[in-house]
Amino acid sequence: MTNHPLLRADHLSFQYTPFDEKRKVPLFDRFSFALAPGERVAVAGRSGAGKSALLRLFARLLEPTGGILFFRERPYGEYFAPTLRRQVALVPQTPVIFDGDGRTNLTLHLDAPPDDATLRTWLDRFDLPADLLDREGRALSVGQKSRLTVIRSLLMAPDVVLLDEPTAGLDAATEKIVVAALTEESQRRGMAMIVSAHHLDLIGPMVDRTITLHPPAEAA
């Protein structure tokens, strides 16, 4: 580990204007945070606390209304956003599956897709059947879809993966497998992780530390 953080938020503020309203609702106010390379952090907080918004800010899908975000100590503004998003990979809360088989769903964004053998290894690590490569993605179960979207992002070999409640649709046994596979990948490649969750039973032990967000009304 170097001393330089991989990701850093410096006095990050975010407020949004509800549709057809003039009022601004603050969600984050001068929030500062640093993530070391390879570090694993959980983001806890009730529904509506801003976990998804924070991860989308880190993925530069939202623009902060104040403060600066850094990747490798360079401000986000200096990066071409699509390139940055391959290094800081967000797995959205709602799994999105596209038309086509499992293989298409795993590799549609890759310039040099891995071969089937590699893909099957990935499926196996997340307890998914190998024949899923040839099955229609839309026909899969919610839990299978969500694991597919996790693998899809990991295939970019990002420096940090942002997982938005990755185990929400899973039973306890599968959740354990997913947490183990993620930890293993993080340790193997030195990949950092930020995982949001509304309960920390399983994710708590795998992370280095936890930050807790409070809904704006409570914080005020």
């Binding site: 993925a59 899908l61 699509p82 390139t83 998003r85 391959r86 990979a89 967000l90 797995v91 959205p92 709602t94 999105v96 596209f98 549609l108 964004h109 979207t149 899809r152 992002s153 970019m156």
Partner: peptide
């Protein structure tokens, strides 16, 4: 919009 944002998150323009 979910689909588009998911694709953006995968590094597409």
């Amino acid at each position: 919009r979910d689909e588009i944002e998911a694709l953006l998150a995968l590094g597409l323009t």
